Computed example of a mutant assay.
Amino acid sequence: MSDAHDDADSPESDDPLAWEVTDSWVGYECPGFDIVHDEVRLPDGTETDYDYLVEPEAVVVLPFTRDGDVVVIEEWRHAVGRVNRGLPAGSVEEHDDDLAVAARRELTEETGYEADRVEHLTTVEPANGIGNSLFHYFVAYDCEDVDGQDLDFNETIRVETAEYDDLLAEARTGELRDGRAMTGLLYYELFGDDE
């Protein structure tokens, strides 16, 4: 897994606020992400260190059925110790030249649904103070349950559908807590189309 400094020659590295990386190594590796340790020099000359999470880019899918319901997943999230309601999502793989294809794959693997079409919604850096995560959001239209799930060994996912307005109400009350789902749902509500 590469670190976030592959673009060290970017224009941002010349910004007076940029930190200079004097040394960098992977401090911890596990399936799905690494923790990178950087030795850095701050703009005022102070030398310190900084650790952050490095993970592959991901796709997140907001899938609508032909009836306008949203396909949602419920999955155990060990870090918070509870079942979490969210949207289908997964890592972009090295051979994924087309992010829309990756979005279709993750939708089908996690839910068994296939989309008639998918469209890019937005791309965000959800936690760029602690990691290099990059989420590409897609809207999937006219989804149908066709194939059954094809889950990874460490995934246990329950698939449901929910009315769009009910999901918005869950976002409003705080019942929907998944950050990826909240971002996709609320971005779509503000800026997406009304299909």
Rank of each mutant, 00 (worst) to 15 (best):
G148K: 06
T22H: 00
D97K: 04
D3W: 11
E119I: 08
F191V: 11
T173Y: 02
A100Y: 08
H78W: 02
P88Y: 09
E29G: 12
T48H: 02
D145Q: 13
Q149S: 05
A58G: 11
E125N: 08
L168R: 09
E20N: 07
Q149Y: 05
M182D: 08
L190R: 14
D67C: 01
L42Q: 02
V80H: 12
V40K: 00
D178V: 03
T46V: 00
R85K: 11
P88H: 11
D96R: 04
G179N: 11
V146D: 12
F135M: 12
L62T: 06
S10H: 09
N84M: 12
D166C: 08
F191N: 14
E12F: 09
G90E: 11
Y188Q: 11
D142I: 01
A115V: 09
Y137I: 03
L151T: 09
W19C: 03
E12G: 06
Y188H: 15
V101C: 03
P63N: 06
D3C: 13
A79L: 10
L168P: 04
E163K: 07
E125S: 13
S24D: 01
L151P: 13
R172I: 02
G27V: 05
G129A: 13
L107Y: 11
G131I: 01
E175H: 00
A127L: 10
H136Y: 12
R117M: 03
E175V: 07
P11A: 04
F153D: 15
G179R: 13
T183I: 11
E55C: 09
V54C: 15
A140Y: 07
I73T: 15
N154R: 06
V139Q: 03
V70P: 05
Y164I: 07
R41W: 03
D116F: 03
V21S: 02
A140T: 06
V80S: 14
R82M: 14
E12V: 03
E114R: 15
Y113T: 09
V159N: 04
H120Q: 14
C30I: 08
E74H: 07
Y50F: 02
D193V: 02
E119P: 09
Y141P: 09
P11V: 06
W76Q: 13
G174D: 00
T183R: 07
A169E: 14
D96S: 02
D15R: 06
D98P: 01
G45K: 00
E39M: 00
P11K: 01
G45E: 02
C30S: 14
G148M: 05
